[in-house]
């Protein structure tokens, strides 16, 4: 991949064409570029040029097939911003993020603070919690589709035993999104826990010792020492989990298709539908650009608001 063998074949001591024993100055200067060229080429072709392409396509009308793609200015954006579909998607996605992120981080911090020791059973539990985060989301979505199936699903069979009526978990627009939040939390929490454990273990023991000498209770110690000192970890997890929430697709696609009645139609699911089911490339691209802008804006807002409260000293 990196065609550098010219240098290797230079026997030490060869000095023709300005080459020193360690290589030609020109070649030496170019070498690092040769090493990064493959990566840079892939990133350019599959990440950066696509951003430009998306922006370009978002101002055009196209269906994949017609030979022309006329420029329509901001029409696609106007269409999106005046559609209930887009606002519904944005609302559903924001709801998902607003509830799933605090749930994930809160639970993860609680569980992590139990699991900081290196005993056998804590390692076992850490492994158990971590397992879903490396398991395929499609499998998890399929398994939970069965758990929450209205007929013959596990949850309803359990409810039947205690005499509760069937609940149409994934068919009721008021419930389906909560089921997805639950499934997403189940899948992702192990990752949060592992990151929190690393953050907690980085807090020096002396701080806890000092606090207990001062007679601080457990809750007091947690609030005054643990919470502020894991702030950088919390900030990191907050950023990535919000970004993740805005990109949820698989569980929606497998479990609900965005239904019932668009109650779980999150942004990427809408993007997939507009782009690859309706083949409306212009509107799909406009939606992708809006998603991009939303995420960049969120990242900026978060770094301004929360960045100041982060304690980097441990």
């Amino acid at each position: 991949m990196a065609p550098a063998p010219t240098l290797m074949q230079n026997p030490p001591g060869q000095t023709s064409s300005g080459c020193s024993p360690t290589g030609c100055p020109m070649v030496r200067k170019l070498l690092p570029y040769l090493y990064i060229v493959p990566l840079m080429a892939f990133i350019a072709v599959f990440t950066y040029i696509p951003i430009v392409t998306s922006i370009n396509l978002s101002f055009r009308e196209w269906d994949f097939l017609s030979p022309t793609m006329p420029f329509v200015g901001l029409e696609n954006y106007k269409l999106l911003l005046s559609s209930t579909e887009f606002w519904n998607s944005l609302r559903v996605t924001a709801l998902f993020a607003a509830f799933s992120v605090p749930l994930r981080l809160g639970l993860a911090l609680l569980i992590a603070s139990w699991l900081t020791s290196d005993r056998f059973e804590t390692r076992l539990l850490r492994g158990a919690f971590f397992l879903p985060s490396v398991t395929s989301t499609v499998s998890i979505a399929v398994v939970f589709s069965w758990v929450f199936a209205t007929d013959y699903g596990v949850a309803n069979e359990l409810l039947k035993r205690i005499g509760v009526d069937k609940i149409p978990w994934l068919q009721d627009p008021r419930i389906a999104l909560w089921v997805l939040i639950l499934v997403n939390t189940w899948k992702q929490i192990g990752y949060d826990i592992v990151i929190y454990i690393a953050g907690l273990q980085a807090i020096p023991d002396e701080l806890y010792d000092a606090a207990s000498v001062d007679g601080g209770g457990r809750f007091h110690v947690f609030r005054r020492i643990t919470l502020p000192l894991v702030m950088p970890t919390t900030y990191f997890l907050l950023v990535i989990s919000v970004i993740e929430a805005f990109q949820v697709f698989t569980i929606v696609s497998v479990m609900t298709h965005g239904g019932p009645a668009s109650a779980t139609d999150m942004l990427v699911n809408m993007l997939y539908r507009v782009g690859f089911v309706l083949f409306d490339i212009g509107t799909g691209s406009a939606l992708a650009v809006l998603l991009f802008i939303i995420l960049i804006a969120l990242a900026l807002i978060k770094s301004r608001v929360i960045g100041r409260k982060v304690h980097y000293e441990a």
Binding site: T53, G275, G284, A288, L291
Partner: peptide, 15 residues
């Protein structure tokens, strides 16, 4: 690129 949502490249990469 770690901060760029990968879905923005979905349609362009397909094309």
């Amino acid at each position: 690129t770690l901060m760029i949502p990968s879905h923005i490249s979905l349609i362009p990469n397909y094309l």
